[in-house]
Computed example of a mutant assay.
Amino acid sequence: MSNWADLTNGKRIKHLRGSDLTQQGLADAAGVSLALVQKAEQDRGELSVGSLLRLASALKTDVAVILGQQTPRRGMSRDTRAALRRLSDAVHDSALGDWDGIEEPSTLAELSTAHDRVCATYWRGEYGELSELIAKVLLEGSVRYGQATGYERERLGSVLTSTYQFASSTAMLLGQRDLALSALTSARHLEENSGDALLVAVTESTLSWIHLRSAKVRQAVAVAERAASRIEPSFSKSPRPQLLMYGRLMIAAAVAASRRDDPVSADDYLSQAHAAAARLGRDEMLYGTHFGPTFANTEAVGIAVALGNHGKALKLAARTELPRSMPKLARNRYKLDVALAQCEAKLYDRAADTLIEVGRDAPEWVKHQALPGVIGKRLAKVSTARVRNISELIGVPLIA
């Protein structure tokens, strides 16, 4: 695609409409005539502000995107754009106390159940359902929180904090860093009153990951290391939740250190994570984040790949078994690391098969990952035809 700003308004509208929405469908959704949509896409005549607003709303985007002032997220489907808009509205409206519900907000028990579904849906990568669940918990939970006292208020604070963390992680996965930081800011405001050190640690882990995705590697290491030092356990006495969160933070620090090509620090952090995992003895989940022997092993593979030790990565992968209980997104993120290592080892057919597995298992999530494109470019050096075939199979443009 050409530079977004260099396209005409009509070409931008046509691109945003995509193949999953007809011109008539857009006209119906926007409440305008078919003739107006046709003229708009052909750049015949000027669109009024009202028409622009209606078209932007129907396309689940902003007027600024149609006008070329902002660039849309590459590969984002119409449904995902709608989910992102819903997520953004929920984060900001809940922070501002703007809920227009008529009935009483859901009870603590109902919101807790919805939060559990948020966790499960996030790890499946189903953004439409996820955004609806997050919106419910944040909007109704914020109203209920304002009315609650004592234990109920404390529990609601934890539910809201965790849900804001999921909203932040989802926004970052979809390329919306500012929204991710806004959601995390709201989480921090709530966690201050929770008195839960482990809940604070989850927020810090999320912030470290945001810094890493934003190429702020030094900050990513510092945040994870600082948070880990606050909850550093005694391996013989500490409760399991503390071991889990400490190990998770050590992994965050190790991953970030590997991205700045610091193998000594990465190995040191990773050894601490393995120690915590060994003490736990099994994979567990807390506050929506998981850790244990499997997680430590799969992350060790990714760290080896980042440090350029592809042979080591493949040896580690050969000794790693993935349990059925492993969350879908964690499983597929690991497989992308394996596929990259396979490429570097010139195991191109195996790398292609691994990439196809990921694309078929998590079709929406994979569109928002950088590694498939990197892997695609490696494979294209051997066969561009094979890469184009993979692109068609998984619905992701891997090469231009």
Rank of each mutant, 00 (worst) to 15 (best):
R153V: 01
S186T: 10
T170E: 01
W209N: 10
L160K: 05
Q176R: 09
E154D: 15
S169A: 08
Y122T: 06
A148N: 14
S194T: 13
W209S: 12
L212Y: 14
S169K: 04
L173D: 13
L138Y: 11
L139M: 15
S162H: 13
L212P: 06
D178K: 12
T170D: 00
A180C: 01
T206M: 00
L138S: 11
A180P: 00
A220Y: 13
R213T: 12
R230Y: 04
L207H: 14
E232N: 05
H189G: 06
L179M: 10
S208Q: 06
Q147M: 11
R124K: 10
G141I: 12
G175A: 04
E129Y: 05
A187Y: 04
Q165A: 04
V137D: 14
A228Q: 00
R188E: 07
G146I: 11
N193E: 14
Y122F: 03
S186V: 05
Q165T: 06
K136T: 15
L160E: 07
Y164Q: 07
Y145I: 12
A171T: 02
S205E: 01
G157F: 10
Q165C: 12
E132C: 11
L179E: 06
V137Y: 15
L133Q: 09
H189E: 09
W209T: 10
E129N: 05
R226G: 08
L133S: 01
